[in-house]
Each structure stands twice: as structure tokens, then as C-alpha cells.
Amino acid sequence: SLLLVAEPEGIFAMPDPTVPESDIKALTTLCDLADRELVVNISWAKHIPGFPSLSLADQMSLLQSGWMEILILRVVFRSLALEDKLVYAEDYIMDEEQSKLAGLLDLNNAILQLVKKYKTMGLEKEEFVVLKAIALANSDSMQIEDSEAVQRLQDVLHGALQDYEATRHPEDPRRAGKLIMTLPLLRQTAARAVQHFCSIKQDGRVPMHKLFLELLEAKA
């Protein structure tokens, strides 16, 4: 219940209507969107029960490892109702053609593979919010100071998922496990995304805001 309440509102990309469509415009829009979403996601993390009790250093480490997984999982959940399209924002939906134009076809296809998995399972909002918190708590940072505290956070979130499934999906005792088993693909896809945006950053043709840059650099 706390995670459902903490879930952020939808976000708008607001691409500049005066700029003609191009790969640079699309990437600039996405990087700006990501920067604003990251601010929202950091406030969200503070509402995960147990997260604020971690040391500031451990909170930072988990976010530095898991931020892209959180961004992608949100895009994936928003895209569940559509076919072969990614809802990066309520006003920014990318189809195959737009993905090609932005040079994001491979990355977006990888994200669509996640969408397909969750569609098949019928992922519910309750499951999505817990899974997102688990992705953060389980982001495998190498810099954790108090790994027992992080383990306790993982256990609480894992317990919440198991309790939910036991109540809502008693017909499928393996549903919680199935959801957890989607996380490797999320990790893999996020790593691809980070790699892609790191090379865009090195090109230097797309303006990026400071928080997005700071977190990309944490991954470099």
C-alpha cells in the first residue's frame, strides 16, 4: 500500500515543437525526460519503507547502481497497454520508425522484450511497484557499507511480493518467483541503455543535464 501511494504521477516530455524532427532532437528529449524522471525517482526511493533508514552512502550506492533499471521498468509498465510502442512519457510514444530515427531500434526492441514478458504474465500495478523497489534494493552495488541492512530491505520487499501473490494469486504459487526471474533481463537491458547513452555522451552532440550526467558517470 505504501508503495502504491508513493508511485509518482505521469510525466510529460514536451518536445520542442519549433525544432524539426531528428535523431538529436529525439535523444535530447529523452535525456531531458530522464533527468526529470531521475529527480522524481529519488524522491520516490525515499518513500520505500526501510530505504531512508539506510546510511546516506548506501542510499546513494543503490541509486547509482539501479537508476536505469527503475527508469526502464517505468517505461515498460506504461507501455503494457500498447502494441510494439514504448511510452517514454504520456506525450512521447516511440514506435519502430521513431526508434530507428533516434538510433534506438536495438535498445527499444530489448525493452519491448520486457514489455512482452510482463504482458504475457498480466503484470499488475501492485506487482510493478514492488518489483521496482526490489530492483533498487537488489542493484548489487559493490560499494555497500552495511550489507545486512540492505539484505533486510530486500527481505521486506520480497516478503511483500510473496504475501501479495499468496493472497491474490493462490492459483499460481510460483508467480512471485516468475516475476523475480524477469529481473536479469531488466539488468541486461539497463546495462545496454547505459552503454548506449555513455557513447552518446562521448559524442557530445546531445545536451545532457547534470543529474543524468552524474549518474551516467557513476556507471562509467
Binding site: V39, I42, S43, K46, L56, A57, Q59, M60, L63, Q64, K210, L211, E214, L215, E217, A218
Partner: peptide
């Protein structure tokens, strides 16, 4: 941690 100033600040803000 000096490198991660913005993340640090955002986590310290109360909201």
C-alpha cells in the same frame, strides 16, 4: 562522494 553532489543533495532534501 564529491563527484555525486546532486544525488547527495536530492537525498538530503526532506521531500
Amino acid at each position: 562522494k564529491e563527484k555525486h553532489k546532486i544525488l547527495h543533495q536530492l537525498l538530503q532534501n526532506s521531500t
